[in-house]
Design a protein around this nucleic acid. Structure first.
Length: 273
DNA sequence: AAACGACCCTGAAAGC
DNA sequence: TGCTTTCAGGGTCGTT
């Protein structure tokens, strides 16, 4: 569920929750996530000075004086902030107890997410170090994509979803940005002009920024903040994702879907060549 | 080096 | 209604 915008929104919530307070306890209720949650290591965060909370790709990094916590929401993860005594939800696996009597809970039904402690600089950690560029920080995203794509013949949709190339573009925003730039998702990434990549780069940035503004897309997932269910509204802005059989918003043709490299993909060939 | 499929897991939705 | 099947927003790993 969570792609870059959803993770960014989550990161901001976490940042405000941890501001002017500190973590006084850690509670691992289920350590079976993507990698075993190592409680002993994670307890390093207790009473530690939190220097910075930031996002790298779809990872949330909480960097402390003595190391860093690396969080990922996988396909179904969310983070909620609650009062200390509030009831657990099913699948609340990792809990941080705050000095201000609040708690931060990582909930993840499918358990594809992770909570990993590292003593290294987080940028050096193996989950982080080979990640590609941040699309929103890159001025010349299109030029970069063009250069990186020359030797690759996989479908352009897979190419932009490759987190070693560019981070944060998941299945929804890949389909959306390709529609917006008029590029057929099946087209080989090495056979697209620089000019078209410039357009694609701009549309990737635009769609991600707009989604962040609107609080993310949210299909089935949701997150909680102070007991209030937070929903993103970007779904209303989707041109193609999840709309197969419905009308194209540009030309009134019917949106198609097709599996590309194992992932469902949505597009309308007449508007995407 | 790059591309592909299998796999990790639960639950919502669709199918019967 | 209720049981079964299919599918889901991600990423890693092993194999071609």
């Amino acid at each position: 569920m969570p792609e870059l915008p959803e993770v960014e929104v989550t990161k901001k919530a976490l940042e405000s929750a941890l501001k002017k307070t500190s973590i006084t306890g850690v509670n691992i209720r289920n350590k079976k996530l993507r990698w075993p949650v190592e409680e002993k290591k994670i307890r390093n965060i207790i009473h530690s000075d939190i220097k910075k909370i930031y996002r790298r790709g779809k990872y949330i990094l909480i960097s402390c004086e003595n190391g860093a916590l690396i969080l990922h929401l996988g396909m179904s993860g969310s983070i909620g902030i609650f009062d200390k005594n509030s009831k657990y939800h099913k699948h609340d696996h990792v809990e941080f107890i705050l000095k201000n009597k609040k708690v931060v809970r990582l909930n993840d039904p499918r358990r594809f997410g992770c909570a990993v402690w590292t003593n290294e600089r987080p940028e050096e950690h193996k989950l982080i170090k080979s990640l590609g560029i941040e699309p929103l920080d890159e001025k010349a995203l299109g030029e970069y994509l063009f250069t990186m794509s020359r030797s690759r013949k996989a479908a352009v949709k897979n190419f932009i979803m490759n987190s070693n190339i560019v981070v944060g573009v998941g299945n929804i925003y890949a389909s959306e940005s390709l529609f917006r730039s008029g590029i057929n998702p099946i087209r080989s990434s090495s056979r697209i002009s620089k000019q078209r990549y410039r357009k694609l780069g701009e549309e990737i940035k635009r769609v991600l920024s707009e989604a962040i503004e609107m609080g993310g897309t949210t299909l089935r997932d949701f997150t909680y903040y102070n007991e209030v269910r937070q929903i993103g509204y970007f779904k209303q802005k989707l041109f193609v994702y999840g709309r197969s059989g419905e009308e194209c918003k540009k030309c009134s043709g019917l949106i198609k879907d097709r599996i590309i490299a194992g992932r469902n993909s949505f597009f309308w060939p007449k508007c995407q060549t």
